[in-house]
Design a protein around this nucleic acid. Structure first.
Lengths: 238, 238
DNA sequence: ACAAATATATCGAGCGCTCGTTCGAAAAAC
DNA sequence: GTTTTTCGAACGAGCGCTCGATATATTTGT
């Protein structure tokens, strides 16, 4: 019921998508070459950036870590800023693809839809962990246009939650005095999973427990019944 | 009851504290000189860093914005890294000072203590907004030692919450099946106030409403009764 | 089937520039 | 007159980025 049926993207999926969306700034002709090297470059870029910050990562660092020469890098982007934009737009695209079209069975009740949104978002961030970490850390530091895109994406995610919460309030699933900013405050709960990933790993918190916990906090705040053990067993058969 | 009686630091308080804690790297002798210029330098540094990122802020930018010459800056810190450390350690110190010693009247019941922690933390971050923004954005990017300090400070804050939640669970104020990571998940709710400060300003959300909302979400998740209107009127007389 | 010719991909030294940092001289304070 | 503070030009290192040369794959001519 709440477990994601949606396809979670692999690194190769993402690189292929990056290639498609940046045909003009990538001068490599053969897709199989491009995708393979893009994976090397992007993986290295994400790792270095998430360790030291994007600004602090020099293209010489990136060249060394990826095994692609300085000149080679510039066959895949025409400026360091373009590299940043590539990654950011891939993340916002993935969120839209994953949350935008919920399966028919969860749309029927606001409660299931809400649980599905939480589950799907957290599993998506887990599958794309370095991408989301990057996006969160670096979105602030850049030009107005890109920043605007990040804010819009942010608000789109929030609107998915706002819509389902409002629908649940109308049909009586959720309490009438649910906080009006509940949608806004759900996001930081989802984000903590990847922002503090190291902490949860250290404490051996499993992703399923984390999802269940966020679902229960949000349900409680909405004035709905929290998830039963039976319900958990059904949706998380592992 | 929950409104902070604790003293919130002003810019001058903070600069004086920075001076005391960095006597060795500050070569200016006369305190009144030092505090005045520190305020110029730190205010400019926070504004520039929070706009473009600390790495992207050059010391020439900082010199121009603060009105202090390049050489003059180096009378107040011996490297750009030291400037970073000054600001970070001031923030962790302020949190400890504010949350470490709750007034006697709130210690009596876990519920009041919890509400006080939420209220005080959010008001502190509001009073030191650029400092906290800086701390959150820049802590990741730096040497092991400083990073360790940031993590410790983070966990100290969480432990204040963990302790009071455990106490409330023991004496029956909070439900027995309260999520075990409730303390961990309270922090992102507190942080959203300064992380997304612009959003809440745009939506005209008052700090009092925000605090009340977080308190209610946490109380609901703890299985405690949410705050009544009467209680609100008492603690937020404005 | 095999060279020659072309197209594609890869390389890394070198460009102009800005960075963090220093230091000796000028100015201000006592 | 001495100490303290302020200044900004100058330095070497490292930055993002370019470009001509080289290596590799594919097509073409016979």
């Amino acid at each position: 019921m709440t477990t994601a049926g949606t396809h979670l993207p692999t690194t190769e999926d993402l690189c292929r998508s990056v290639l498609e969306n940046n045909r003009d700034s990538i001068s490599i002709q053969k897709p199989e070459f491009a995708v393979r090297k893009l994976a090397l470059i992007l993986n290295a870029a994400l790792e270095l950036s998430n360790k030291k910050g994007f600004q602090a990562m020099s293209l010489r660092d990136l060249s060394r870590a990826s095994g692609v020469s300085m000149g080679g890098l510039y066959s895949y982007f025409d400026s360091k800023d373009t590299l940043l934009k590539m990654i950011l737009s891939e993340v916002t695209g993935a969120v839209e693809a994953a949350l935008g079209e919920p399966p028919a069975e969860v749309r029927q009740t606001p409660r299931d839809h809400l649980l599905w949104l939480i589950d799907t978002h957290i599993r998506l961030t887990e599958a794309m962990l370095p991408w989301f970490t990057f996006s969160l850390m670096e979105a602030k530091n850049f030009p107005a246009a890109e920043r605007r895109q990040a804010i819009d994406s942010e608000e789109l995610t929030e609107s998915y939650f706002a819509e389902v919460l409002a629908r649940g309030q109308q049909d009586g699933s959720f309490s009438a005095d649910m906080p009006p900013l509940m949608a806004a405050l759900t996001k930081p709960l989802l984000q903590d999973w990847y922002v503090k990933r190291a902490k949860y790993r250290r404490r051996k918190v499993h992703i399923d427990s984390y999802i269940a916990m966020v679902q229960n906090i949000v349900l409680a705040a909405c004035g709905a019944a929290t998830r039963t053990t039976a319900e958990k067993a059904e949706s998380d058969p592992a």
